[in-house]
Amino acid sequence: MAVVERELKRVVGRAHQEGPLQEDAGRDPLEYRDPHQAVKIFGFWLFLATDMLLFACLFATYLVLRTHTDGGPTARELFDIPGFMAETFLLLTSSFTGGLATLAMRRDRRNQVLGWLAVTMALGLGFLGLEIKEFAADVAVGATMQRSGFLSAFFTLVGTHGAHVTYGILWMLMVFIQVARRGLTTQTARKVFTVNLYWHFLDVVWVFIFTVVYLFGVVM
């Protein structure tokens, strides 16, 4: 009987230990556990859809005007291959580190979230620095927005993306401060998730800019 009692206690103890783990494994991610936060995430998806329409219009305008150089510099003459390759490397790497921040958030690792957000912001600032340098070099040789339809469309499209990146870095900084002060709650988790979702969206847009604007520009 003593042996049976010990075995029964051992099995019951194991059930108590394993039960919560199995329950947690089946739960929603932290950012979706509060229905109010889940609704806000859905609303953010709708915002991204409208922002996608904005960029679609800018891409369409660029494709129409890309050959309208009016005797000014063409894309092949203007674009610096090492420069836009470096920009692409920095931004795509920042998308990876942003994903790591989301993964750390879902594992409830606050310090890792802060670390990966910091790395993502640093890479984003490096991207912006290279883009500003590119724009300054273009203006220095007379390639301004007023010079041709091609340059107007180029600066508008790439500049709008750059403005989005700037906003994304500022937003990420605010989320960084909130996580540092409040820790990981359903609210701060939702903010970590949405700011990284926004950042991934900007990376997808940049892949199209890299292909349609820069690669086509130096090849065609």
Score class of each variant (00 low, 15 high):
residue 16 H to E: 13
residue 20 P to F: 06
residue 20 P to W: 08
residue 21 L to W: 12
residue 24 D to G: 00
residue 24 D to Q: 08
residue 25 A to I: 02
residue 25 A to G: 00
residue 26 G to R: 13
residue 29 P to E: 01
residue 30 L to I: 15
residue 32 Y to L: 15
residue 33 R to G: 04
residue 33 R to V: 07
residue 34 D to P: 14
residue 34 D to G: 14
residue 35 P to L: 07
residue 35 P to W: 06
residue 36 H to M: 15
residue 36 H to K: 15
residue 37 Q to N: 10
residue 38 A to T: 07
residue 38 A to L: 06
residue 39 V to R: 15
residue 40 K to W: 02
residue 41 I to A: 12
residue 42 F to M: 14
residue 42 F to H: 11
residue 44 F to I: 00
residue 47 F to L: 11
residue 47 F to I: 11
residue 50 T to G: 05
residue 52 M to W: 12
residue 53 L to T: 10
residue 53 L to Q: 03
residue 54 L to R: 02
residue 54 L to T: 09
residue 56 A to R: 05
residue 56 A to K: 10
residue 57 C to M: 10
residue 58 L to C: 12
residue 60 A to V: 08
residue 62 Y to Q: 13
residue 63 L to D: 00
residue 64 V to M: 05
residue 65 L to G: 01
residue 65 L to H: 05
residue 72 G to L: 10
residue 74 T to L: 03
residue 75 A to S: 15
residue 76 R to N: 09
residue 77 E to K: 09
residue 78 L to C: 04
residue 80 D to Q: 13
residue 80 D to K: 09
residue 82 P to K: 07
residue 84 F to N: 01
residue 86 A to T: 15
residue 87 E to W: 03
residue 87 E to T: 11
residue 88 T to G: 02
residue 90 L to P: 00
residue 90 L to H: 02
residue 90 L to E: 02
residue 92 L to A: 11
residue 93 T to I: 09
residue 95 S to Q: 05
residue 95 S to L: 05
residue 97 T to L: 12
residue 98 G to F: 13
residue 102 T to H: 08
residue 103 L to P: 00
residue 105 M to E: 07
residue 105 M to P: 02
residue 106 R to K: 12
residue 106 R to F: 10
residue 107 R to D: 12
residue 108 D to M: 04
residue 108 D to I: 01
residue 109 R to M: 12
residue 109 R to E: 14
residue 109 R to W: 08
residue 109 R to H: 11
residue 109 R to A: 11
residue 109 R to L: 13
residue 109 R to C: 09
residue 110 R to W: 04
residue 111 N to T: 14
residue 112 Q to G: 01
residue 114 L to E: 10
residue 115 G to M: 07
